[in-house]
Design a protein around this nucleic acid. Sequence first.
DNA 1: ATTTTGGATATTGTATTCAAAAGCCAAACT
DNA 2: AGTTTGGCTTTTGAATACAATATCCAAAAT
Lengths: 217, 217
Amino acid sequence: MGSSIAIINRSLHDQVASRIRDLIIEGSLEPGSRIDELQMLEELGVSRTPFREALRTLAAEGLVIVRPSKGSIVRKLTQEDVFSMLEVLGSLEKLAGELACERASDKEVEAMVQLHESMMECYRTQDRMPYYKMNQEFHSRLAELSKNETLQEMQSNIQARLKRIRYIGSQTPESWAGAVADHEEMILALKGRDATRLGKAMVAHLKKTWDRVKDGI
Amino acid sequence: MGSSIAIINRSLHDQVASRIRDLIIEGSLEPGSRIDELQMLEELGVSRTPFREALRTLAAEGLVIVRPSKGSIVRKLTQEDVFSMLEVLGSLEKLAGELACERASDKEVEAMVQLHESMMECYRTQDRMPYYKMNQEFHSRLAELSKNETLQEMQSNIQARLKRIRYIGSQTPESWAGAVADHEEMILALKGRDATRLGKAMVAHLKKTWDRVKDGI
DNA sequence: ATTTTGGATATTGTATTCAAAAGCCAAACT
DNA sequence: AGTTTGGCTTTTGAATACAATATCCAAAAT
């Protein structure tokens, strides 16, 4: 109900922005490559006005770079970029974890535990895609439990920029096992409302993410 | 030289965005009030295309809210908004401080000390405006010393959203004195390369900022 | 008197047009 | 041969024109 109306009501600009975001994340639009307006417009079936507005918001989100008079390109992340993002994300999720321990309701904590169980099930059956999706959900939800909107916004922004890389990242069986162990620790800390412990777990988790990812950039 | 060319080369869209940003910060555009396109276009002397693009980037930056088919408004910050921003800013500047202690060169630290001295001079002569400007500079520079671009970006984004409020904030003589004492502590920690101490100083400083500001929102 | 409805007006959203800048290639020159 | 110049083509930037939506007010109905 509400949601479908909301989708219909969204301005063309927003729809276009989402479409391009998806194309970037799934890799159809290669990092560093120029975005051909003409071709894009054809595919999306819109005119230049909403399209260019969409590019502006994507630029502000850090996914795209518009070079005046020279066309837009998909932002290509260097190793330094990714490192700096993970460093900040670590700090943000640390805060998220600490605040969640203080501010989340028992019900909310229980829901996190549930989600974790589902992830474990996927791990057992080696179901990559649903695990990946739930993992995103897990981190977003933790940010929500901080009850800090700015934190959520910043986290999801960095999350979006890293999405492609993260997916590539958690590939090897060992690294997956490591990630699972990290999540186990997080859940224990959250259940015990141990802010310090959860904070540390988040930082450690993101440090490992860097180790997994750094050679693939 | 380079800078002036860069300014000339900036697209109209960017110039318009900056102009509006300034209007918001200096308070000519009241939070919560509708932005009248027609009137705005007249004042700025541009057409709707670059203007609306500018609105999109400002929206992505969180300064403006565009309500589909109902016009844009200057984002109005609630107490919760400001609290959440300062909470995140605290975490970011804590990280910035810690990293700065590790990564800044002696020369850069020396430059910070210089800046601090200038601020002290302004405090002695009770020169509000230059102190305010240098204070912004101080915090931005600390973020730079972290050598983390994402951190700088996020910090400056929150900084921009809070600018108006912060200015209102540091008004009373006592609060100013308190802020000055905080900065004294920061400089000592930085000179001593004491990451933990500087981190704590940053968090404490932003907690106090909240106390100063909260009743004025 | 209050609510509802119809339509005129104002405002916003999108497409199209026009202008300017960058890219490209071939011819002329060193 | 390699480099520079001039103009043609493509692409981008900005303004205008057109369409859709919301807002407002008055008249009619309950």
